[in-house]
Amino acid sequence: QVALSRTQVCGILREELFQGDAFHQSDTHIFIIMGASGDLAKKKIYPTIWWLFRDGLLPENTFIVGYARSRLTVADIRKQSEPFFKATPEEKLKLEDFFARNSYVAGQYDDAASYQRLNSHMNALHLGSQANRLFYLALPPTVYEAVTKNIHESCMSQIGWNRIIVEKPFGRDLQSSDRLSNHISSLFREDQIYRIDHYLGKEMVQNLMVLRFANRIFGPIWNRDNIACVILTFKEPFGTEGRGGYFDEFGIIRDVMQNHLLQMLCLVAMEKPASTNSDDVRDEKVKVLKCISEVQANNVVLGQYVGNPDGEGEATKGYLDDPTVPRGSTTATFAAVVLYVENERWDGVPFILRCGKALNERKAEVRLQFHDVAGDIFHQQCKRNELVIRVQPNEAVYTKMMTKKPGMFFNPEESELDLTYGNRYKNVKLPDAYERLILDVFCGSQMHFVRSDELREAWRIFTPLLHQIELEKPKPIPYIYGSRGPTEADELMKRVGFQYEGTYKWVNPHKL
């Protein structure tokens, strides 16, 4: 086992960053958080920038500027975001240094004079007029057009580079997404736009490419001749908990499936790229999406959770019991969808996408189930092999396979070949997804960000279904809070070829 401390991990990262040409360590950078008073800024962006600063992973002359409508001070920003920093008493001095680099400007999102004030403020910072500028839009999409237009007109660096990070949702359907994309691309070049999907920053999602293309053993079996089906799962054990009003506007397909799960599907299904260059990788992902037809209604199961009468606390409440959810809402909190990649490698292999709230566990994984062994000599005792990439929690890679049961006879039983990170790298604290992705933006690497043509294809696949749901308002199937979801989803999976045995229990190697 390799035991690495946080300091050692960050030392390795620093070495990698400083050796590259793309990370300008000594240049002045300004990180501007648009929507600095909001939840995302408070819980994710400010803490992430602090962790990067604490670990010495930001360029040395980096300033952080918050911008929002609320009249706040840096002290206010500190008060609301610091509880999420997880700072230790030993880091007190470092924390003071961090907040000394912070400033805040209040202004409207659609007022040109406010942006001119913001620009004057940035120019007044040390070497601010020639600094590289990175704008993070932690804002609702309704203000994107006004904000990007004003940034472009008043706040661009004339000497350094300018980059803009856009948070999902990128529209509600193909038409609104196209409108937003066309607007942003009329102001910024594609190499300046970073559409963030934080799932692409997760260690195991990034590991998929290495697993596939750096190991000879997987190449020959990664196709329709050997793989019976692919299941991509995202499960949350909690409901909307008072935030249903926002969720109800989008629903589970827009929230998770059309982005996170579809991105994971691309990494499983794509061909080997010409290189690890950002556009070479994204070219292959677009090719996969172009091979997927629009979702067919007979390959869809929609569910909505109801309270568990035997549960406790939140578990007793259904989705419609959330006071922020519109009365009688038919918005799905669970969806199972089957897609097919219609190309030579994957023809006929079902890709089953499942996601839901208020389920029995927290889990995100990719599961490849292989065909049955031909010419069975073990009297149907063999179960199908599976390769599982567990994204969260407890990152893991393992192969479910058959071995001989101890004893006199040739009785096979299920076991696993474990390729888990935790076994080799004991207690290594890896940077989280937002840390990686923000560092990628500083480096100018777009590999783990969504390109406009990729986004367009993703919406093309799901828009007809979303429009049909909005028009017909089908009643989702009720499922109990804390269950596996509607049984109809299991029946759909069985119908397209997935075999669920229920006889195997994964042993978490992190707890051995």
Results as ranks from 00 to 15, higher is better:
467 H>R: 15
318 G>D: 11
473 K>I: 09
333 T>F: 02
306 V>F: 14
282 R>E: 04
319 Y>L: 06
418 D>G: 12
396 A>K: 01
334 F>L: 07
440 D>R: 08
369 Q>P: 01
495 R>E: 13
482 G>D: 05
414 E>D: 10
339 L>A: 13
292 I>K: 03
466 L>E: 05
466 L>S: 06
437 L>K: 01
381 Q>Y: 08
330 T>Y: 11
483 S>K: 08
404 K>R: 00
485 G>D: 00
301 V>N: 06
403 T>V: 08
299 N>T: 12
452 S>A: 11
307 G>Q: 12
399 T>W: 12
456 R>F: 07
379 H>P: 15
367 R>E: 04
322 D>Q: 06
415 S>I: 06
262 L>Y: 02
465 L>P: 05
313 G>P: 10
440 D>P: 01
426 K>E: 10
281 V>G: 08
274 A>H: 13
273 P>I: 00
412 P>L: 10
428 V>G: 15
390 R>G: 05
332 A>W: 01
424 R>S: 06
379 H>L: 10
506 W>R: 01
341 V>K: 00
366 V>C: 13
324 T>S: 14
306 V>M: 15
315 A>F: 09
393 P>K: 08
288 V>K: 03
389 I>D: 01
403 T>M: 12
265 L>G: 04
499 Q>M: 15
504 Y>P: 05
389 I>N: 01
290 K>V: 03
396 A>V: 06
392 Q>F: 06
441 V>H: 03
254 R>T: 06
486 P>Q: 03
414 E>K: 05
367 R>C: 01
346 W>Y: 03
404 K>Y: 02
389 I>K: 02
282 R>L: 00
328 G>M: 13
450 V>I: 07
263 Q>N: 04
347 D>Q: 14
398 Y>W: 12
487 T>D: 15
331 T>V: 07
314 E>G: 10
259 N>L: 00
444 G>D: 09
288 V>E: 01
453 D>W: 05
269 A>Q: 00
281 V>F: 00
412 P>Q: 12
465 L>E: 05
412 P>S: 12
423 N>W: 10
266 C>G: 09
254 R>Y: 02
418 D>T: 01
358 A>C: 08
404 K>P: 05
309 P>K: 13
427 N>L: 09
366 V>D: 04
444 G>Y: 01
352 I>A: 01
501 E>I: 11
401 M>F: 12
332 A>S: 12
352 I>P: 00
355 C>D: 03
348 G>E: 05
467 H>K: 13
488 E>T: 09
494 K>P: 04
260 H>L: 01
369 Q>L: 01
425 Y>D: 06
387 L>R: 02
394 N>D: 15
407 G>K: 04
292 I>G: 04
425 Y>R: 04
297 A>T: 15
300 V>T: 15
430 L>G: 04
477 I>T: 13
497 G>Y: 06
295 V>Q: 08
301 V>G: 00
486 P>G: 04
505 K>C: 15
404 K>Q: 02
310 D>M: 11
335 A>D: 01
340 Y>P: 00
474 P>Q: 12
485 G>C: 05
384 R>L: 00
481 Y>Q: 11
361 E>M: 07
498 F>G: 08
